[in-house]
Design a protein around this nucleic acid. Sequence first.
DNA 1: ATCGGCTCGCGCAA
DNA 2: TGCGCGAAGCCGAT
Length: 509
Amino acid sequence: MHRMTLDHPPECAVPALRVQPVNDAPLCETGSLVLYWMTAARRPFWNFGLERAAAWSAALQKPLVILEALRSGYPWASDRLHRFIMDGMAANARHFKNTAAAYYPYIEDAPDAGKGLLAALADEAALVVTDDFPAFFLPRMLAAAARILPVRLEKVDGNGILPLGAAQEPFKTAYAFRRFLQRSLPSHLFERPPVDSLAVRELMAADLPAAVTKRWPPADPDLLEGRRSLERLPIDHRVEPVAQTGGWDEARIRLDVFLEEKLAVYAELRNQPTADVTSGLSPYLHFGHISSHEILHALMQQEEWFFDRLAGTSRGGKEGWWGMSAGAEAFLDQLITWRELGFNFCATRKDYDQYESLPPWALKTLEDHAMDPRPYLYSPEQLETAQTHDSLWNAAQRELVREGRLHNYLRMLWGKKILEWSPTPREALRIMVEFNNKYALDGRDPNSYSGIFWILGRYDRPWGPERPILGKVRYMSSANTLRKLKVQEYLKRHGNPQNGEVGGGRGEE
DNA sequence: ATCGGCTCGCGCAA
DNA sequence: TGCGCGAAGCCGAT
């Protein structure tokens, strides 16, 4: 018989540093299944959480059930976000159908209708494995689950290449984090999840518990596949779906296209807003439709990279550490340094979304300029509907509202202007968070907060000369951006025909 | 076109 | 104790 006092299942590829028990409840010997509650890593491949659950399933000889639920009551729930997540669920359903595991997609179709589902499944389970994600409502949801579940609940960190547990403190600059990575990352570089955790083991065939599915019916495939409209769901229907499709399969296509067609010119052209050489993977990373491990692995293969290419000495520099092409190094600085810097902050600071989390110099200088007159003041409605005097800013806002994304470089300018045009820095922060989380597919992510708080000084340094409103916080101007970037095509694409804002290179200041 | 100054905090060499 | 340096800046001088 199997020993139920095990802390870790045998034959499991998940490093101990990535696993944490969330409650004190024991394994339940009489449980009839192992439950993987998929919340952040919504994918069948390269998934540490799934690996852990599958290892338990094999060790305990109990079938594996995968619950992927989508609530309707979370902040900013909309057709846009639901559609993208459900695309991913449809792709997962198609994949898991051919495996021993039982996939349980659930869409909450009325407020709080899903309440009790997790607990009901956990009642049948020997233990529950779930994903660790350090931002948005997920930490709170997990803490609530920990209080009510009668069996062992484990969270598994499959977020990045560096385990969240590897650093206990936040970093003040990307430079400092890069130095840390260059010391610490080599030992984690090859601690990868299996590509397919279900295919590498013999698992018992699983069925969904009928009593549970009777009360909480699995999602209608027509709804997941987009053949049925979302109009009856209690979510915001005014934020419409975008043209792109979510899911691990779509993510993989984008990765292939990026590596094949864009990487070579990425370093040179990524700041040009219409060059279209970025990966576009950020929403897929956000919802866990693709793993950084898969991306890094593909990049290593493409670059024919070996471990001994790593530079032994590097002092936090952006280039030259990996020993890859310029495009690959620039991309890895985004994927690993910047992305994981944000995860580190959220994981180590509970107040990651609070104004007070800004560095002291930024708080002070913004306070010093709190009473400065604001030459331009716009209401949230004027900003949301892109009704400002600045046509470049309006174009960026329209791209966000219509397409659910905001170009990397322009999003900095976008935020700096919101700071200038708002009555207080706190109000500017509120507006940025609201618009970003409401409209951006990749919003509500640790990196959303990195990007937004960077506007206000996080990870940055003071810059002279001291200016009105921003004080010593780095200033950016639309006029200079117009000079530096080729924005003609961008303005044409996102201009407002009714204002004659088409093809014009105007943008005041 | 390029350069320095603006300004703070930190790691590291001395 | 001093020095170098930092997500993409800005501006004026040369």
